[in-house]
C-alpha cells in the first residue's frame, strides 16, 4: 500500500454501517442458536459483559511509548496490557466474592478494577510529576471539563501534552470500573453454567481461564479500534466506541457459544 492510501486509512474513525449491521445480524443468529440450545440467557449476559468491557477500554488513558518519554499524556503502556491489568484485577476481586451473591460479586469486581486503575493512575502521575518533573497537561482540550483548569500553558512545545490530567485520571477509574464489572459478569455467568455439570474446582478453573481469554479478546479488539493512544473520555477517538461495542458483541457471542457448547455437547 502506498503512503497516500495509508493517509486515508488514518481516518479510521468512520463508522462502518454495512459491516456493523452484518455483524449484529450474525450476533443475533448466534444468540438465537444459543436460545435453541437452552443457553440463551447466559449467552446474553456474557455479551452484555463484553460490551461493558469494550466501552470501558475507551475510558482508559493509554499513552504508549511517547508517554514513557513524556511527550504524550496517558499511562506509558499499550491498551491490552492496561485493560488486562484493570479487568483481571476486577475479575479476581469479583471471583473472590462469588459466593456472596451476584450483586456483591459484581460490585466487588467493579471496585477491584477501579481501585487498580486509581492506584496505577496515581503512581503514574507521581512518577511523572516528581520523577520526570513535568506537570500534567492535556494536548487535546483547552480546559479540563471537570476542574476547569486551563491546559495549554502547561504543555511543553513539541509535545502532545504529558502526564495525567484530572479528566484522564477519572477516565481511567471509570474504565477500570466498567472493565471489572464486565469481566466479573462473564466469569459469574460461566461459573454458574459450569457448576451445574462438573465439580466446583473444575468449574472455577474453566470459568476463570475462559473469562480471562474472552476479556483479552475483547480488550485487544477495542485496542485495535483505538489504534494506539487515547487520552480518556475527552479524546476525539473516544467517539469511536460504538464500533468496538458492535465488534465485542459479535466476538463475545462467538466465543461465548464455543465456551457453552463445551458442556452442551458433553
Amino acid at each position: 500500500m502506498s503512503a497516500i492510501a495509508a493517509k486515508a486509512g488514518a481516518d479510521a474513525g468512520a463508522f462502518q454501517p454495512v459491516p456493523s449491521i452484518i455483524a449484529l445480524v450474525l450476533a443475533i443468529i448466534v444468540i438465537a442458536v444459543g436460545f435453541v440450545l437452552g443457553v440463551g440467557q447466559t449467552l446474553c449476559l456474557i455479551v452484555l459483559g463484553a460490551a461493558l468491557i469494550a466501552f470501558g477500554v475507551h475510558f482508559v488513558p493509554v499513552g504508549g511509548a511517547p508517554a514513557a518519554m513524556g511527550q504524550a499524556p496517558g499511562i506509558a503502556t499499550g491498551v491490552p496490557m492496561l485493560a488486562a491489568g484493570a479487568g483481571l484485577a476486577g475479575l479476581f476481586g469479583g471471583a473472590w466474592a462469588a459466593e456472596l451473591g451476584l450483586a456483591v460479586a459484581l460490585a466487588g469486581g467493579a471496585i477491584g478494577g477501579a481501585l487498580m486503575m486509581a492506584i496505577t493512575c496515581l503512581m503514574v502521575n507521581m512518577s511523572y510529576v516528581f520523577g520526570m518533573g513535568i506537570p500534567p497537561a492535556s494536548g487535546k482540550i483547552e480546559k479540563d471539563p471537570l476542574t476547569g483548569y486551563t491546559q495549554p500553558e502547561f504543555k511543553s512545545q513539541g509535545t502532545e501534552g504529558h502526564g495525567l490530567p484530572f479528566i484522564s485520571y477519572v477516565g481511567g477509574v471509570i474504565g477500570g470500573l466498567l472493565g471489572g464489572l464486565g469481566g466479573t459478569l462473564i466469569y459469574l455467568e460461566l461459573l454458574a453454567f459450569y457448576e451445574a455439570v462438573m465439580p466446583a474446582a473444575d468449574a472455577v478453573g474453566l470459568a476463570g481461564i475462559l473469562a480471562v481469554a474472552m476479556f483479552l479478546v475483547i480488550a485487544v479488539l477495542a485496542a485495535y479500534n483505538i489504534t494506539g493512544t487515547i487520552e480518556g473520555p475527552h479524546d476525539p477517538k473516544f467517539k469511536r466506541f460504538p464500533r468496538a461495542i458492535i465488534a465485542a458483541i459479535l466476538a463475545s457471542a462467538l466465543c461465548g457459544i464455543l465456551a457453552l457448547l463445551l458442556m452442551v455437547l458433553a
Binding site: 499499550g78 485496542a223 485495535y224 466465543c255 465456551a259 463445551l262
Partner: peptide
C-alpha cells in the same frame, strides 16, 4: 497500533476456545 504483545494475547485468548471445544 496496539503493539506486538496484543497479537500474542489475542492469539491465546481466541485459541483457548478452540482448544477446549476440540478436546470436548
Amino acid at each position: 497500533g496496539a503493539g506486538v504483545p496484543s497479537a500474542g494475547m489475542l492469539a491465546f485468548g481466541s485459541g483457548l476456545f478452540g482448544m477446549f471445544l476440540g478436546i470436548a
